[in-house]
Amino acid sequence: MKVLVPVKRVIDYNVKVRVKADGSGVDLANVKMSMNPFDEIAVEEAIRLKEAGKADEIVVVSIGVKQSQETLRTALAMGADRAILVTAADDVHTDIEPLAVAKTLAKIVEEEAPGLVICGKQAIDNDMNATGQMLSALLGWGQATFASELEIDGDAAKVTREVDGGLQTISVKLPAVITADLRLNEPRYASLPNIMKAKKKPLDEKTAADYGVDTAPRLTIVKTGEPAAREAGIKVGSVDELVAKLKEAGAV
């Protein structure tokens, strides 16, 4: 079985973003970018399936700016076999939407015919939590989102999902789209020899136009602003003072 893993290049999770003063967006020039953490988990899961003999090839895909190549190389260094880069914008600030990403991925799925797609549950920049579900809808496949356990069982996947009240286990027919939650696994680091080897692994370069997908945004960004700031608080010296302050504030 072939496994396809879409990976996104996002602002590193340790970086605190700055909103541009003119309200046009956030400043992404010269900030550290990394693979979306949930996508590292998705890549790791695919590698584990391969190691367990349940998958035979792992293809990673990224849609975005040319620099997303670095993200794909990271995935190849972790253990993916082959990569597809779809260049769709020149400027890191051009943000196109999950619907367009999902449509492009759907075309790639038609060509590659994977038995399973593993996405991250959400990208930590736009926090849409949408692409995997949209892809699954466009393909007419089943979906299992927010996965914390995955077991391939013949022509179905048994997936435990993190839901509001705890955990839910479902069985989904393959091919299907699965989205990875935080506790699915702990992704490995790429070793230096594997980083060197990854440079020689195949990476296909495409453009959004090759897939004929209309990527015009459906949402217009009116403005991007700072969230309301909290007023500075105080330090209390003891538990007694804390209790007094809480009573004063009517909080207990």
Binding site: I11, K16, V17, V19, V26, I124, D125, N126, D127, R218, L219, T220, I221, V222, K223, T224, G225, E226, P227
Partner: peptide
């Protein structure tokens, strides 16, 4: 967006 570090106003 960005873990609540920015608030985006969008028109659909």
């Amino acid at each position: 967006i960005y873990a609540g570090n920015a608030i985006q106003t969008v028109k659909s």
